[in-house]
Design a binder for these strands. Structure first.
Lengths: 266, 266
DNA sequence: ACCCGTTTGTGTCATTTGACATAGCCGAGC
DNA sequence: GCTCGGCTATGTCAAATGACACAAACGGGT
């Protein structure tokens, strides 16, 4: 992980882990997110019929383990998670960050086995679907099929952007890109106040995790973060990402405003 | 493109470009590919009803241009293509390589605008779908919805693997990884003879394109290719990729045999 | 309040990779 | 057969990034 250096591990099972409960879709916390379009009453009814309840996952907990069977998918109701792949020798690549409304676990629903692990970065609530019931939902209700494909296409687009960052951007631009991408995602899902003077996203991410997402060493990540902070462009500490000059950073990164259509969710 | 250095461009329109014609699905060249499952007669009927014919694209031609409207999708019938993203300043990231059976253009079908360009690496035949008719196909026929989601999930998986390569692998391993990935893909789609002593895929790819796919400079790519050739591990020239010791390279790259389920196509 | 593991920060040096410059090669067109 | 442009190859040097070693801050648990 992050190019050598000692590593953290999965950490312990505490009592609060994975409490599960059930709320009607009417009160779904996703309903009033600015960048999301809520399903109508008819859709909600279908969703309620197919889902298997909710689950709360505390910060730091691993939700799905790479290599595990992967018999369920979920939609993120609240919180932020990290999707990552491990190589045999311990190197780790953080592949993407998941926000409220995102659908997680689709790939494993086909492959049978998780190609990546998923870990909660904040306390999180998830809406669970057993794999088979989810497939029914998709094949019986064209509207859901359409939405799932829509979400897949978006996810693919996000991965392409990350790929461009890793392949073409130098460290500094890379970090700025990631910060911006996260903040934009936060704006979209209502985690970032759109009117505040300095766009700020509160998510605990360690420098090691940033390093593993951007393919940089931990040390170099640290130095790059400091440089960006000193330049007044991005101020990112372990708790929160602040972008004092949003427009400057957008220009540096070549921000494409096309990336912000309203997203459906399931 | 490939970290500075002079660049090639889109190249000229020649007479043979984009000839279009129509063959029944019964004679579809994808039918007997080893790693693909062909649609049954009923599905073929639906496909024939929704598709808009075929198109032949000569090697080197750009099939879809980044930023263009993106009003159609297609399935690759024959040949190999390259999907790439351009930054404003000319840097280019090759995002993935498309093989027979792959579905291209899904993202743009939703966004309205192509996020990447698609270029034919070999002479190519495509099966075209107008965007709207394709959506009908998907929403009317659950089986196709299922298959499209399946293909999306696989594409996402591929991009994740590339992301790991760019983020975690040093140059040499990166090149070996790409060579192996391409050859495995070739095996799957019948472009690589499974029994030959040396697994070999015939596709013309320039070192500049490899560089732009792996996020390496052209010069370094060149040297890395030579090193791999000298080591007898991967012999990759502008015409063809040969992997003399398939198992050795699989071990070096941590090849995951899970990646080879039979693929549906549309 | 103390301990201890994790995270952040800093200095120094090694390595990988990139930049530039230039030459040979090879295929396409005249 | 020659010229031309893109591709491949090679040498030399510079820059970006990684490795290692260690200190300081932080945070959770007892």
């Amino acid at each position: 992980m992050h190019r050598g250096g000692g590593g953290a591990s999965g950490s312990g099972q505490n009592a609060a882990e994975m409490r599960s409960f059930n709320q009607p879709c009417r009160t779904c916390p996703l309903r009033d997110r600015p960048g999301l379009v809520a399903p109508d009453a008819g859709q909600r009814e279908w969703i309620e019929r197919h889902r298997a309840g909710e689950r709360a996952v505390p910060r730091g907990e691993e939700v799905l383990r790479q290599g595990a069977p992967g018999s369920r998918l979920f939609t993120v109701l609240e919180g932020v998670l990290m999707r990552s792949r491990l190589l045999e020798d311990g190197r780790r690549q953080v592949v993407n960050i998941m926000f409220p409304g995102d659908l997680v676990g689709l790939q494993a629903a086909f492959d049978g086995e998780m190609g990546h692990g998923v870990t909660a970065l904040t306390d999180t609530r998830l809406c669970l679907f057993p794999r088979d019931r989810f497939m029914e939902l998709v094949t019986d209700q064209p509207r859901f099929a359409y939405d799932v494909i829509w979400l897949s296409a978006r996810e693919e687009d996000a991965l392409e952007q990350h790929l461009v960052a890793l392949g073409q951007r130098p460290a500094r631009e890379r970090v700025a890109y990631l910060a911006l991408w996260l903040v934009e995602r936060g704006l979209q899902t209502g985690l970032v106040a759109p009117d505040s003077a300095v766009a700020t996203l509160h998510v605990p991410i360690t420098q090691g995790q940033i390093a593993d997402m951007l393919g940089l060493s931990l040390v170099h990540t640290n130095r790059t973060l400091q440089a960006l902070r000193k330049a007044g462009q991005v101020d990112w500490n372990g708790t929160r990402i602040a972008i004092p000059q949003l427009e400057t950073v957008r220009a540096m990164v070549g921000f494409d405003p096309r990336g912000l259509p309203k997203r459906p969710y399931i």
